[in-house]
Simulated assay, not measured.
Amino acid sequence: MDLNADLGEGFGRWSLTDDDALLEVVTSANVACGFHAGDPESVLAVCAAAARRGVAVGAHPSYRDLVGFGRRYVDASRSELVADVLYQLGALSGLAQAAGTRVSFVKPHGALYNTAAAGGAHGEAVVEAVRRFDPRLPLVVLAGSPLEELAQAEGLRTVAEAFADRGYTATGALVNRRLPGALVTDPAEVAERVVRLVTEGVVRSVDGDDVPVHAESVCVHGDSPGAVAVARAVRAALEAAGVAVRSAVL
């Protein structure tokens, strides 16, 4: 099972995630590309640190929403969004190459991730941008989402993703961050959820139902409360359960 986290999400003098500590735990790093977070110097440093540890570097493109941390929907045209995603992929690719590594996958961020997951014009824009940039790059998608089918139809490899620390509805969708139950912060509870996800293929919804989820990668949000403790608990629990933790994209 692949374990990923969002990294490089500071900006200038402000830091949001403990990138060094998380890079000791995860196998794939979703690195900010500047549109929701991430200045060039810090992104270059994260790429270099990932390269030293053998962690896969992925592009984490966003809507152009630096103030809102990429968590607000932006009503961009399809052509504008294609160009914005391409711009971010190119920027991270250059920094990754300079750091001795490369972009190995793409995972949209925040509101773009959620909107693209439903397919539609913005899902099509993300797929088109990845295909035009490098059709060999895997696209990380919400497990069971319309985007998974859309990307595969366009010839892209997909990596189905589940979330360790996010609440799920009975339909398998993520609980809106503004609602109760959106985040799970207790390390032991998160670890137990992930082990069940990997070994049984289910996740407990906020309604108390077991929802089937098939995933190749599990995300721990780097900006969540106690992210490092959660990530460590998840990895330890997976290894204790006999699950090999390795990147799904290398």
Results as ranks from 00 to 15, higher is better:
Gly8Leu: 12
Leu179Phe: 07
Gln88His: 04
Gly110Phe: 00
Val245Trp: 07
Leu16Val: 14
Ala50Met: 04
Ala188Arg: 08
Gly172Arg: 12
Arg64Cys: 12
Ala143Ile: 02
Leu92Cys: 11
Cys219Val: 15
Ala182Pro: 03
Glu154Gln: 15
Ala96Pro: 03
Gln152Ala: 15
Ala129Lys: 09
Ala32Glu: 01
Ala231Gly: 11
Glu128Tyr: 06
Val130Leu: 14
Val175Asp: 10
Leu238Gln: 13
Asp6Thr: 03
Asp19Leu: 10
Leu16Glu: 03
Asp186Asn: 14
Asp223Met: 05
Thr115Asp: 01
Asn30Arg: 05
Glu41Arg: 15
His122Pro: 02
Val175His: 07
Asn30Ile: 05
Ala173Arg: 15
Asp209Lys: 10
Pro180Val: 13
Ser28Thr: 15
Gly90Leu: 07
Ala160Trp: 03
Ala215Met: 09
Ser93Asp: 14
Val74Trp: 06
Glu80Ser: 15
Asp20Lys: 08
Ala173Met: 09
Ala173Thr: 11
Ala125Val: 04
Gly201Pro: 08
Arg196Lys: 10
Asp65Gln: 01
Thr185Pro: 11
Asp186Arg: 15
Arg52Ala: 14
Gly222Tyr: 05
Gly68Ile: 12
Glu128Gln: 15
Glu9Ser: 00
Gly10Ser: 05
Ala59Ser: 10
Asn4His: 09
Ala51Pro: 13
Ser145Glu: 04
Ala233Tyr: 06
Thr158Asp: 08
Ala32Gly: 00
Ala49Asn: 02
Leu179Ser: 07
Ala125Lys: 03
Gly38Pro: 14
Leu112Cys: 00
Gly58Val: 06
Arg136Leu: 12
Arg196Thr: 12
Ala244Pro: 03
Leu92Phe: 06
Leu23His: 10
Ala118His: 12
Ala98Arg: 15
Glu154His: 15
Gly38Cys: 13
Gln88Ser: 00
Gly110Pro: 01
His214Gly: 13
Arg157Ile: 06
Val43Leu: 15
Arg52Thr: 07
Val85Leu: 15
Ala143Tyr: 00
Val57Cys: 08
Gly110Val: 00
Ala153Pro: 04
Ala164His: 00
Leu137Ser: 01
Met1Ser: 03
His221Gln: 10
Asp84Ile: 05
Ala240Asn: 01
Leu142Lys: 04
Ala99Phe: 04
Val245Glu: 09
Phe163Gln: 13
Pro146Ala: 11
Thr171Phe: 03
Gly119Pro: 02
Ala117His: 00
Pro40Trp: 12
Ala50Thr: 06
Glu216Met: 06
Arg132Trp: 07
Asn30Pro: 05
Asp186Thr: 14
Ala45Gly: 08
Val234Asp: 04
Arg78Val: 12
Tyr73Gly: 03
Ala229Cys: 13
Arg72Val: 07
Arg13His: 14
Ala29Tyr: 11
Leu150Ser: 07
Arg232Phe: 06
Ala153Ile: 07
Val203Ala: 06
Ala50Tyr: 04
Asp65Asn: 09
Asp18Val: 02
Asn4Phe: 10
Leu183Asp: 10
Asp84Phe: 06
Val55Asp: 09
Val190Tyr: 02
Glu9Arg: 00
Gly222Asp: 06
Tyr113Leu: 04
Asp207Gly: 13
Val74Ser: 07
Tyr113Ile: 02
Pro225Leu: 01
Gly208Thr: 07
Ala151Ser: 12
